[in-house]
């Protein structure tokens, strides 16, 4: 079900670096779990719609009015910040 190459790709997409030991441990474990999950492919779902949510919810829109929200100071309280902005690494 899952090869070392696939695991490497998954880890890269998940932004995780696995040590050799972790990769050796995770590979058979993920294989066992995903092999079990793949039994879903045998279920007949012809004509069945997907359920993104378990209950139907009304999608009533609220009025587009300004309301009280966090102050800039509050929003930045848990972050590294500079000049009133959240500081981050280089994006490009």
């Amino acid at each position: 079900m899952i090869t070392q190459d696939v695991l490497d790709k998954v880890a890269k997409n998940a932004r995780l670096t696995l040590t050799k030991e972790e990769a050796a441990q995770f590979l058979p474990q993920l294989d066992e779990v995903l092999t079990h999950f793949s039994t879903l492919q045998d279920v007949d779902t012809e004509g069945v719609e997907p359920s993104f949510l378990p209950v139907k919810l009304s999608t009533e829109m609220r009025e587009d009015l300004p309301e009280e929200c966090l102050t800039q100071e509050e929003a930045l309280k848990n972050a590294q910040s500079k000049n009133g902005y959240i500081k981050g690494p280089k994006s490009v």
Partner: peptide
């Protein structure tokens, strides 16, 4: 959720959930 597996896993599970 990855391309190539998404239909067989995530999208399929959402339909089984409906059942």
């Amino acid at each position: 959720r990855m391309a190539g597996y998404r239909d067989a896993f995530y999208n399929k599970a959402l339909k089984v959930r409906t059942k």
